[in-house]
Nucleic acid binder design. Structure first.
Ligand SMILES: NC(=O)c1ccc[n+]([C@@H]2O[C@H](COP(=O)([O-])OP(=O)(O)OC[C@H]3O[C@@H](n4cnc5c(N)ncnc54)[C@H](O)[C@@H]3O)[C@@H](O)[C@H]2O)c1
Ligand SMILES: NC(=O)c1ccc[n+]([C@@H]2O[C@H](COP(=O)([O-])OP(=O)(O)OC[C@H]3O[C@@H](n4cnc5c(N)ncnc54)[C@H](O)[C@@H]3O)[C@@H](O)[C@H]2O)c1
Lengths: 253, 253
DNA sequence: ATGCCTTTGTGAACGCGTGCACAAAGATGG
DNA sequence: CCATCTTTGTGCACGCGTTCACAAAGGCAT
């Protein structure tokens, strides 16, 4: 690593590609596992395999952070854990609020892995008065009326929205007005936010639909292959009405 | 192109870019909302705005499905809903199993939006004997010992994994062996699956870390700006311990 | 020291996704 | 039937991300 003679800290923050940022947590997880097994160093090949990526990609990703490897040896696990943590901003504490403590919100609040990486559930917020004061995961739920003061008091900059879709934009607006600038949205809603606010969405329904698309395609392939092979496939493709599944594609009047 | 009399429906299934597939559910959601309001047609501009994308991108996306718009008018809402649904494979029923009925698994089972798009929770599976037989969301939890027969009996091809990370690979292997070929994984584990099996992962922890990265970057910017402006920023940046070593992200000379 | 062997770091080529900009299609009104 | 106006569908250029392939770096044994 750090041959010292490494003039510039190399490619600095501003230059890290988004795709790389998205993979850093993956590397970090794999490295943490190695660290717990007291493995001192790891090669790009091994680590890449553990993280489920291509080793060239991993090396390039790391090259954006600096020159932290040793040729012929690999990467120092502890050092890399530290560097990635720092790059991701995990060396500091991030208070998080969850808004909408229903099924999902409660599950998230109870989620242990949450706190493990510097994220701390600072408050739980819900609009239902009967929820107010109730303990969820050892934290008292507070009413949404106090949202602004809760955000301010806890210096929160990351908010998680798990309200129904209809309330999401409104909650989002209040969070942003109160100073939150990063939002993780579980509601099936396209949030609009001012410049400078980051939104990431997690959408179960979309994920399933993407899987369904590929599943359908695989099934269609199996089907056509089985026709020529005379083989029976287990999962019959009903649904696609029409015997040969091709597209009618008839524009309606 | 698309002179109507085009024999083949143009760019067929095989040709739909992955990025487009990932956006189709978004369009579908926006279109469904329009449909419920009985809006007959919609322009690419309006729909794009509702879906939160660029209108050129939307038009290009739709062009992969065929030529379904009318110049000077826009797209027929109902027709497009149907076409996209069919393309995504939502005109058929997709039985889904959830494995690991803890906090998250139970929340998913209770999730209404699940069934709304052709996905049906066919079974809930858990390893804890004390869960077996318990009703969750009106469905009896079954024991993981019976996983194979449950998959077969319900002709399931999509599985959702919400077990702890340690059990995920093992559960995955059994699902795949039993015939599941699409998996939605919520456990913080890199699953390895044979060719032909699709895995999508949802990882809360990764999403938060990505947000933290950008949050940190924004904070650093604010900080350096406030230094020159003499302005105080609300959220103090502690955490980056040590006045020394750190790269101040100010892009040193 | 020297040479060998392993593994990094990166230049270069390529492919995918995005967005611009516009010609053509079609509706609509006269 | 023609002119005008709207909006689609897409050719094109560009930038990002991925992957290959290899020279250089460094450890290690002799
Ligand atoms: N449960 C899931 O597995 C799941 C999966 C994917 C997406 N989602 C989405 O996540 C969201 C929550 O799902 P859920 O199953 O937990 O729903 P839920 O109805 O159980 O919980 C919603 C909670 O939000 C609260 N709420 C409503 N309006 C509010 C407001 N204006 N301010 C603050 N709180 C408010 C309600 O009191 C309720 O406690 C929904 O948008 C749903 O579509 C849920
Ligand atoms: N709860 C969250 O908000 C959340 C968020 C992100 C990720 N996750 C991940 O989702 C997973 C589940 O989280 P959770 O909070 O629901 O955990 P949990 O402990 O509440 O539930 C896990 C369930 O899986 C069952 N299980 C264990 N081994 C099994 C096996 N081999 N086969 C079948 N079932 C088995 C357990 O009996 C338990 O009911 C974890 O991997 C967690 O890291 C959870």
């Amino acid at each position: 690593m750090a041959t010292g003679r490494n003039h510039r800290p190399a490619t600095r923050s501003r230059g890290i590609p988004e795709a790389t940022v998205a993979r850093l947590p993956l590397y970090l997880r794999a490295l943490t596992a190695l660290s717990e097994r007291s493995v001192p160093t790891v090669s790009s090949e091994e680590l890449a395999s553990a993280a489920g990526v291509n080793s060239a990609k991993l090396r390039k990703d790391f090259s954006y952070l600096g020159s932290y490897g040793t040729r012929g040896v690999g990467y120092d696990v502890e050092y890399l854990v530290y560097q990635i943590s720092r790059e991701l901003g995990l060396t500091q504490d991030w208070p998080v609020v969850i808004v909408g403590i229903g099924n999902l919100g409660a599950a998230l609040a109870n989620y242990g892995g949450f706190a493990s990486r510097g994220f701390r559930v600072a408050a739980l917020i819900d609009a239902d008065p009967s929820m107010t004061g109730r303990q969820v995961a050892g934290i008292a739920v507070q009413h949404v009326d106090d949202l602004e003061s809760i955000i301010a008091a806890n210096d929160v900059s990351i908010g998680v929205i798990t309200t129904p879709g209809g309330a999401a934009q409104q909650v989002c607006d209040r969070l942003v007005a109160a100073g939150v600038s990063s939002i993780l949205n579980f509601a099936p809603t396209v949030l609009s936010v001012p410049e400078g606010v980051d939104v990431r969405k997690v959408d179960l329904s979309i994920e399933l639909q993407i899987l369904a698309f590929h599943e359908q395609r695989k099934a269609a392939e199996d089907l056509s292959r089985s026709v020529s092979d005379g083989v029976r496939v287990s999962r019959a493709r009903r649904g696609d009405q029409g015997p040969e599944g091709e597209i009618p594609a008839v524009m309606p009047a």
